[in-house]
Amino acid sequence: MTTIRTGTDLAAVDDVVAGIAAHGERYLARVFTPRERSDTGDDPERLAARFAGKEAVIKLLRPTRDEAVPLTDVAVVLDASGAPVVELSGRAAELAAAVGCGPVAVSLSHERGLALATAVALSER
């Protein structure tokens, strides 16, 4: 049976700014892929939207409490037309395959210090 999986997340831009201020490159490398950083130019608003996108995708994948999914295993990058797309690797790709999850669509928005993301995918389980 095919089901629809969804995930939504809200992130504060100030939290990204604080992470960068406190941990600099270590924070950026732990949370974002090189492609995400390139696509955003390290702009905190755009990074917060990517962070919300990652969290929305992880919620969609529904890992158990014991299953850690590194944030860099979910990349929210721009396609040739400038639209956000999701690329899964590592543990995130394994979870998606385990539930027969097809491509993940994501929508991002940021305004007034907040970033919102919604992720949707079809799943066979």
Rank of each mutant, 00 (worst) to 15 (best):
L78F: 03
A22N: 13
A80K: 10
T2F: 09
R91V: 15
V99Q: 15
A83D: 09
H110V: 01
R91Y: 02
D15G: 03
G53I: 06
G53P: 01
P44G: 12
L47F: 08
A11I: 07
L108Q: 06
V16C: 04
T64D: 15
L61Q: 07
D39S: 04
G82M: 03
F32R: 00
R35V: 13
T40H: 02
T8G: 01
A119V: 07
G90F: 04
H110D: 09
F51W: 15
V31L: 10
V57G: 05
V16F: 03
G24F: 02
D79M: 06
A117G: 03
D9P: 02
G82I: 04
L71S: 05
L88N: 06
I58Q: 06
S89R: 15
L114A: 14
R37S: 09
E36M: 02
A21V: 07
A21Y: 01
A29G: 02
T6A: 12
L71I: 04
Y27H: 12
V17L: 13
K54S: 02
G90W: 07
P63N: 01
V16H: 01
A49G: 00
S38T: 14
E124N: 13
A52M: 03
R37F: 03
M1T: 12
V17S: 11
A29H: 11
A68Q: 13
P63T: 01
R112V: 12
T6S: 12
A80S: 14
L60D: 05
T118M: 13
V74C: 10
V86A: 08
A52W: 01
D43L: 12
A29W: 00
D39F: 02
F32H: 01
G7I: 01
A52Q: 04
V74T: 08
T118R: 10
G102E: 14
I58L: 10
V16D: 03
I58D: 04
L10W: 06
R50T: 05
S81L: 13
L47M: 10
G90V: 08
T3K: 13
A22Y: 00
E94D: 15
A49I: 00
D79S: 07
P34V: 09
A98H: 08
R35K: 13
P70I: 00
A98T: 08
V13W: 09
A121D: 04
G82F: 03
A18C: 05
A75E: 15
D9N: 06
V99A: 15
G90Q: 08
P70Q: 01
A121T: 07
S107M: 08
A21E: 15
D66W: 09
A52D: 02
I58P: 02
L78N: 14
A29I: 05
L114D: 05
E111Y: 03
A80W: 00
T6L: 15
A56K: 05
P103Q: 11
L28W: 00
F32A: 00
D9I: 02
A121R: 03
E124Q: 14
V104Q: 11
A93P: 00
V104R: 10
H23L: 12
G90T: 06
H110N: 07
E87N: 08
V77C: 08
R35I: 10
E94H: 12
G90H: 07
V74N: 08
A18G: 03
A12D: 13
D79W: 05
K59L: 09
L61Y: 04
A105L: 13
D66M: 12
R5Y: 05
T6E: 04
T72L: 07
G41A: 11
E111Q: 14
T8N: 11
G41T: 10
G7Q: 04
T64Y: 03
D9W: 02
Y27M: 14
D79Q: 06
L88G: 06
